[in-house]
Design a protein around this nucleic acid. Sequence first.
DNA 1: AGCGCATTGTAACATTGGTTACCAAAAGAG
DNA 2: CTCTTTTGGTAACCAATGTTACAATGCGCT
Lengths: 211, 211
Amino acid sequence: MIQQLKNSYGHLFEDALLTEINQVGTYKDIPEGHKLIEVGQYIKSMPLLISGAIKIMRDDDDGDELLLYFLESGDTCAMTLACCMGNHKSEIRAIAELDTELIMIPIEKMEEWTGKFKSWRNFVFNSYHNRLLEMLETIDSIAFLKMDKRLLKYLKDKATITNDNIIKSTHQEIAYELHTSRVVISRLLKSLENQGVIKLNRNFIKLNSID
Amino acid sequence: MIQQLKNSYGHLFEDALLTEINQVGTYKDIPEGHKLIEVGQYIKSMPLLISGAIKIMRDDDDGDELLLYFLESGDTCAMTLACCMGNHKSEIRAIAELDTELIMIPIEKMEEWTGKFKSWRNFVFNSYHNRLLEMLETIDSIAFLKMDKRLLKYLKDKATITNDNIIKSTHQEIAYELHTSRVVISRLLKSLENQGVIKLNRNFIKLNSID
DNA sequence: AGCGCATTGTAACATTGGTTACCAAAAGAG
DNA sequence: CTCTTTTGGTAACCAATGTTACAATGCGCT
């Protein structure tokens, strides 16, 4: 484990902290599609991402859902952090978007390390900061963009995350993540295809330009 | 200053920290409507709210705007925190919603205290946590609620913040904060009045039930 | 090949929200 | 008190999005 740890976090943490993480952390391989956190669940450990990506979704009581943002290598889940510290239930759902490697840290270490390691403190503050910015971006999209622009942004984000301009999603899946209906997505995708931005296929979409 | 400080933060911070805050902090009286932070501005000190309320707005490049949330006594601005630590420009605008008393802390103290005082660390983490939750609530409203429900939630929130079921706003002001048009707000307000939920008057709205 | 399910295309229509235009009432300025 | 500005009411219309319904296509399974 120590090698992956150093690759992803060596530039952030001092050796003493890396050693401790190596001792108390549990390395995990998560397959794509695996559910890491369910809404309402209590959380007892926090993930440090090594590789892959995790999708963070918001659900409401009526079964509506919405994609909030993705976590990538070097990220941790600030919502999890927050829930750990306050011993609250999770407000979100986390699903592996890709095959993902991560290290789980028991929450007891959290507090200890925030007192002990300046680099850990900075890491945690930075995580919060980045998550706030992601949330802001999400709010911008929902509040200020029309659905066609939101859809295009979604496709581009997805291509960036997977590092692949082939997006392997059905129209229905996209509709769920953007909290709209399949018909609307099909309509707008067809329009994007007519504009030459994408090429539609069954079960996947090719993004012509990632710029 | 020490007295207001103790009233608002005495249960959170140990005496040593309160003393330091008293030494380095600057007490300020902010009149309603005063602009505290502008978008793009660099921030060199962070506010601890003693009384009153501060409105946090998001602006986009096209002059669109949207209310994110309110800060109240015992809160601090996590966005400010984030900006301070990272030395980033502000992503938001902050305006006094009521006459507000606060204490400004120079950012240099921030890092020092996070190392030195556990209560300060917890306070900062809690602030981040609360702000993330507020942002989630904002996202819920925009994504899952139709404008009539959003408007009603807005009126209720405003009544709670001001502790007054008379909301002193014009339709235009409400429209800006919800990022819609005056005509839409007038239409929906009239409908709410017909349902008996509110009573409309020039320059203010009476909320009939706060429940 | 043939069946059945999942996926996509598309039309027709309903609803919500945004825009423009215009009027009237109230408040403020002189 | 008169003139002007601000605020709110309302109609008519448009654009975006959501809904329902149904057809067509492709894929997996046997």
